[in-house]
Nucleic acid binder design. Sequence first.
DNA 1: CAACTATTCAATTGTTTTATTGAATAGTTG
DNA 2: CAACTATTCAATAAAACAATTGAATAGTTG
Lengths: 223, 223
Amino acid sequence: MNLERQWKDQLYQEFARIGKCLSSPKRLELIDLLAQGPKAVEQLAKLTGMSVANVSQHLQTLHESRLVRSHKRGNFVIYDIAEPSVAEFMISLHRLSEKQLVEIQKLKSEILHHSVNMEPIAMEELLVRMDRGEVVLLDVRPEDEYAMGHIPGAISVPMEELEQHLTSLPADKEIVAYCRGPYCLMSAQAVEILKSKGIKAARLEEGVHEWKRYMEDSKMSSI
Amino acid sequence: MNLERQWKDQLYQEFARIGKCLSSPKRLELIDLLAQGPKAVEQLAKLTGMSVANVSQHLQTLHESRLVRSHKRGNFVIYDIAEPSVAEFMISLHRLSEKQLVEIQKLKSEILHHSVNMEPIAMEELLVRMDRGEVVLLDVRPEDEYAMGHIPGAISVPMEELEQHLTSLPADKEIVAYCRGPYCLMSAQAVEILKSKGIKAARLEEGVHEWKRYMEDSKMSSI
DNA sequence: CAACTATTCAATTGTTTTATTGAATAGTTG
DNA sequence: CAACTATTCAATAAAACAATTGAATAGTTG
């Protein structure tokens, strides 16, 4: 039955359309950034170090596979992930990649040991200590990304404004900073600044999506 | 800080290694097949309609990204998925693709309506009716795949042996057949045969991995 | 150890994909 | 409506990939 072969070929061709989107490093980075909140093309170009035309082309590819959507506001075109499930899927990809590729683990630990004592705090520990009122959680992403969704209890202090807010932070509590997730270094930079000012600080590796996934997973394992 | 850019580029390069594996239709099909159980190269070539050399090359690619592993038995090289999480990840990819790409939904319904009345039975309904002893669940995959893992309560009747076993099936119960999953047509063929013999039969779309995921999901939502 | 088997390797070809450039478009602002 | 902005389009050149073929390898069997 050759018809079956033909059907399967068409079907897997379609799956591969999503797959092709995931085959370019820059495209993956774009999806990760968009998962944090809608962004314009030029903004994405700056964040990824690509030319605007190049970004636009990649976004076109992502759009054709229905992974992102766009709308015009003013004369900006604002891109966004098409569905929350795209962000969830990216976490699956990150997890699988970290599990299978030692290279990623290596790259991550390189950065950790680059600045001393940057061992991240575990999600579980954070939640317990936040409950006890021992720590303050800082979301150092840009304000609009915080507005799109954040870990409950976190306060928004965008990276650029951190230095100004230093005095208004409670002196008696430990600070924990988080940002876009494990592959974003803003929180690490924040911790470095805080520490250099003599403030006790730690980095939370997880971002909003990882937190969500954590909550769902722990709900399940508590049965 | 150009160092950060460099780090991110390396990191996403690695993620894209996994992504590249998912960019070829044939490679996706190979992973899906291996998710059902270990297989030799020639076997995979037959199942996918590729040349042996071509399959070998794809398997090499998958091996480099640590998605599959291999060992020699006799003078066969047996390939297998490297980790159960690879199978889980493939389900995430299938789900995302089905959700985002109408084309896949179309292809699936084409096959359903090709043979009349092939509306699949829902997992939930199946489980209830199996509990009541109303249905018999048939695993029509090759015996070794059944041995690697199957839905509890299912009995193994490989496709080729189905005709011989027809008489030994309980006449008073409805038969439900399943196979490798939603993109495998063996169960549909089985149902067609059963129906042509006047036996009441239905197709379960899900395979073993989808069943597992279903059980985990329903465990969670029952809180 | 010679014949055979299953798989991999290497070289080639044709096809896709990527980054880059400069022009075109759509929309906004003075 | 002219100047300007953000984005897309189109054309190109360079690079990566996929399928094919035939030879090479490793292992088995008579």
